[in-house]
Write a protein that binds this DNA or RNA. Structure first.
Ligand code: ZN
Ligand code: ZN
Ligand code: ZN
Ligand code: ZN
Lengths: 147, 147
DNA sequence: CTTGACTCTAGAGTTAACTCTAGGGTTTAC
DNA sequence: GTAAACCCTAGAGTTAACTCTAGAGTCAAG
């Protein structure tokens, strides 16, 4: 019955660009759709679902390569949980270590900010002595990486 | 007295590649050093300090463009605290929102992981019903982005 | 028929921060 | 006096995930 929807329509429905759709096809995330006589791609509803799958998986932090694997798993309807669990574990540990990194960074930045703020308060009217943060960065001894 | 050190030496001392040094020069982070008769760059100790500055600032999450500004500020020995404080504020707020993002991600991933784990426990010997995480991703209704 | 909106392919451009290569010259030590 | 180790420039390549372009063909409406 429905002969399939063209790329622009699919793109609008899914909220992605048509270039991205063709890109996903080249990368093996979307299957190659049948074509019209004139060579236009004709997508079916499952492709729309796959696009949503991609966007959800991206929001979970998966790369396109990982998503391709997930999509293949989903299509084969094989068990799959083991593979997915491993992927989730790896991602989770990546995310957790990234969070730790960022927290350390946050502390450093906050400390620098306090120093600048103090210097600005101190030098109301008085001549400034120079930014303490810049001084630390320019300081030859690289002691601040230690705890 | 000391006529200046060549690029390889400087690179070894600072722990960066020679290509990176030339790259920093092109990007305006390092000043153009004088040259030997044969055209070799001859660096002085201040350049080594600037390289350390760059590496420390990078570890604080600053981009090379931002570091260039910081270096220029540091060289002019003008007050500078205001500018630095604003940079720190922006960086800090970036870092904090990134942390929030990642924490939300962490929760999602952990929840998926628990689901996979339960399914794996449930199906000891029994046939699997398919991965619940994959099912959610493939599910047409995109409800999970809401809280 | 003739617009105008749409689509096709192949390939280049984007961003950041390097990294590497090719095809040369320079220094220094033996 | 020559070989090893070093350095030079300009420019291409890397990664991810697109984004955009050029130049051409297709399709529906009027
Ligand atoms: Zn599917
Ligand atoms: Zn599972
Ligand atoms: Zn300096
Ligand atoms: Zn300051």
């Amino acid at each position: 019955m429905s002969a399939g929807v063209r790329i622009g329509q699919l793109a609008r429905n899914a909220g992605v660009g048509i270039h991205a759709i063709r890109f996903y096809e080249r990368r093996g995330l979307l299957r190659r759709p049948p074509r019209s006589e004139g060579g236009y791609r004709l997508f079916d509803p499952d492709d729309a679902r796959d696009l949503k799958f991609i966007r959800k998986a991206q929001s979970l932090g998966f790369s396109l390569a990982e998503i391709r694997e997930l999509l293949i798993l989903e299509r084969t309807s094989a068990p799959g949980c083991v593979h997915v669990r491993d992927l989730l574990r790896r991602k989770l540990s990546d995310v957790r270590s990234k969070i730790e990194e960022l927290k350390a960074l946050e502390a450093q930045l906050a400390s620098g900010l306090r120093k600048c703020q103090r210097e600005l308060n101190r030098s109301r009217g008085q001549p400034e002595k120079g930014c303490p943060v810049l001084k630390e960065l320019a300081d030859a001894k690289e002691s601040e990486d230690s705890k």
